[in-house]
Amino acid sequence: MLQACLNGGLSKSTHPGVPMSASELACDAVAVRAAGAEELHIHVRAEDGAETLEPSALAKTIQAIRRAVPGMPIGVGTGAWIMPGGRRRHRHIRDWTEKPDYASVNLGEADAPEVIDLLTIGGIDVEAGLWNSQDAERFVAEIDFKKCLRVLVEMTSGNGEEALREAHQVFSILRRADCALPVLLHGEAGSVWPCVREAWRLDLSTRIGFEDGVHLPNGAVAANNADLVRAAIQLRG
């Protein structure tokens, strides 16, 4: 499965094509679906461009995307940095009316088990985000695998070799715990394309998009998210 991560916490100062508003995200969703992406990962924005989990902003964005790409699964980030931050954002998650299909939860954050429970109670699937082997150890020790849709092995190193080394340590921890959940492997900046290639080699899911990096495999800056999606599909062969 190829997921398109459209914007993350980036602004147009990083790349003018970063989609921010609900309408921009909806237009980008159409483009990446046509390019071959199967699912979406977005960071909802407030009117001022800041990341938000506020229910009305999330509903507006999810509705716009669903009108544009009916049936395409939509996931959102729930990072602890998103205002109002920390456990105060739990109220927003609890009050969502228009719900995403799934949401990612970073196991490196103190309240990760609580956020997973909030999402599960709300009928929202969970992507468990593991940035390193410490996150993996916490995941297998504290989280009921049945509460999760998949594991995100999210390598934050910009060095491809370091990222793949860490990813395989995470894979080993998951195997030892008999975790049979689907895995999505992705990198960041310089490790984006090594992780995409390794995901395809191992028959895993992966993701691509401006959130993770703006460069194509040849080093050129992508014109848009759809360019990145097409490049990832070409690597799959």
Rank of each mutant, 00 (worst) to 15 (best):
L181E: 09
I65R: 05
M72F: 07
I233A: 09
H168M: 02
G8C: 07
G86E: 05
L149A: 14
R138G: 12
G36Y: 12
E188V: 06
Q134K: 15
Q169M: 13
A136G: 10
H90N: 11
L6R: 01
S191C: 07
L10P: 00
P19C: 08
G209A: 12
E198C: 05
G123R: 01
V221R: 10
D125S: 13
G219A: 12
A35Y: 03
R88V: 13
P16G: 06
V105I: 07
D144Q: 05
R45P: 11
V76W: 00
H90K: 04
A46K: 07
E142K: 08
L164I: 05
S13Y: 05
L40N: 10
N106T: 12
P73A: 13
H92R: 01
I233E: 09
V76Y: 00
V151P: 02
F139L: 11
I65C: 14
V30Q: 15
L119D: 11
P84Y: 02
G213R: 01
E137F: 08
A199Y: 03
A64T: 04
A141D: 14
K12D: 09
L228G: 02
E98S: 07
H186F: 14
G36P: 13
A35S: 12
H186Y: 13
K12E: 06
W81K: 06
P16E: 11
T78Y: 01
V192W: 02
K60F: 04
T78A: 08
A223C: 15
R207A: 11
L216A: 05
I74W: 00
L53A: 01
E114N: 10
A112T: 03
A68N: 12
V30T: 14
L107R: 04
A136Y: 05
T14R: 03
D227E: 15
G122W: 04
P70A: 06
L152D: 00
R91P: 05
G71H: 15
I42Q: 08
G49M: 03
V192K: 03
Q169Y: 02
G77K: 01
T156Y: 06
W200L: 12
I62N: 08
L202K: 06
A226P: 04
S56D: 12
R67E: 14
G213A: 11
I143D: 01
C5I: 04
A50L: 11
A167H: 02
A167C: 05
V126S: 08
P182Y: 11
E142W: 05
R94H: 14
V30A: 13
L40M: 07
A35V: 10
R94Q: 15
G86S: 07
W96I: 09
L185N: 01
G213I: 04
E198Y: 01
A31I: 02
A226S: 14
R236Y: 07
L10C: 00
I62P: 05
Y102A: 13
T206L: 07
I121T: 10
S205P: 00
H15D: 09
I62L: 15
I74F: 00
A110T: 14
L235C: 11
I233Y: 05
D48Y: 10
G108V: 05
A46D: 14
V32K: 02
N218L: 13
G17C: 09
A189G: 06
A223D: 15
Y102M: 14
P19A: 07
W96K: 03
A223W: 06
G160H: 07
P73S: 13
G122C: 10
A68L: 14
W193G: 12
A64K: 03
